[in-house]
């Protein structure tokens, strides 16, 4: 017994020292930690300037509490139109007030009327069409470096885009204090990129929501499954009868197998009714609609 006690005592003493050493370790001057880098950059006002995204839930996860004001950001989408522009509306509103935003090879026409209604300054939008991948990269770089552009949105040729080019765009965006946004298909998730921030967007169950994964960010680990309500920024709910639609879909599915043709008609009719009611709601109480949702 005494021997074991002794042993215990002996074994107890060194750990205490170790603990102390461990406790002191973070303050050791030779130790470099990733956090240091972060605190340094955030203290640097110019580097760390951010744009509020308009979504408090998202801002919480982003370094500095918003989109970076300069640098490269990637948005990976399975399909155009799932809410990527609504997500960026607050940014577009802010950036177009004093400077231009270049759209390089957008997949469709950015509709001026709608953008204007959402208080985006459409006078400060510039659309660029290119023929080759080289031209796309070149115009991205030129736009990033120009002091007149605050933002560059580009839809590059995915097959030809490589990691070196993302680095080049990132450097150009930094030196020109521009926010460059690359829109890439979701398959690019597998490919590495030197963007500061990479987001994967996926449609959520409801049309007014967007499911978002942060694949890469500064000062933190990737986060999955952030669900944003796009009405926070756009103030326009589209899918107010979401639960009803869901029920309808389930019901449709159940009914589909025995007698498909009739039921679908029925379902569509009831859906239509719901919709017309919905429309009446939105027209008469458009202000309260957002709050209701």
């Amino acid at each position: 017994m005494p021997t074991t006690q002794k042993n215990q005592q002996r074994s107890k003493k060194p750990p205490r020292q170790n603990e102390k050493a461990l406790f002191d370790l973070p303050s050791h001057p030779m130790l470099w930690r990733g956090k240091d880098l972060l605190s340094r950059t955030s203290s640097d006002l110019f580097q760390g300037a951010t744009l509020p995204s308009g979504y408090p839930d998202l801002d919480r996860h982003l370094q500095g509490g918003g989109w970076p004001q300069q640098g490269l950001m990637e948005l990976l989408l399975p399909q155009a139109g799932i809410g990527e522009l609504r997500l960026l509306l607050p940014v577009l509103q802010q950036l177009t007030q004093g400077a231009y935003i270049a759209w390089i090879n957008p997949p469709f026409i950015p509709y001026a009327t709608a953008l204007k209604a959402w208080e985006v300054n459409t006078d400060n939008l510039l659309i660029v069409r290119t023929r080759t991948h080289d031209e796309t990269l070149w115009s991205m770089e030129r736009c990033c470096l120009s002091s007149g552009c605050a933002g560059v949105m580009a839809w590059p040729e995915e097959r030809q885009l490589n990691i070196k080019e993302t680095r080049r765009i990132q450097l150009a965006a930094r030196s020109g204090s521009t926010l460059a946004m690359l829109f890439r298909p979701i398959s690019a998730i597998e490919r590495s990129s030197l963007a500061e921030l990479r987001l994967a967007l996926r449609p959520a169950a409801c049309a007014d929501h967007l499911s978002l994964d942060i694949i890469k960010r500064k000062g933190g680990w990737p986060i999955q499954g952030i669900e944003l309500s796009l009405t926070q920024a756009s103030q326009t709910p589209y899918d107010m009868m979401h639960s009803l639609h869901q029920q309808l879909a389930v019901w449709e599915k159940a009914q589909q197998t025995p007698m498909p043709g009739n039921v679908i008609d029925e379902a569509a009719k009831s859906e239509q009714e719901a919709k017309s009611q919905n429309r009446r709601n939105t027209t008469s109480h458009s202000d309260t609609a957002g709050a209701l949702h």
Binding site: A99, D123, L126, V128, W138, R142, S146, G148, C149
Partner: peptide
């Protein structure tokens, strides 16, 4: 900013063609 952007537009149009660069109204 407008000056810078007009230079940029000139440059883009010089390389990409006259119709490659436009704004929407």
């Amino acid at each position: 900013a407008t000056l810078a952007i007009s230079e940029l537009v000139d440059e883009l149009r010089a390389r990409l063609g006259q119709r490659a660069c436009y704004s929407i109204r």
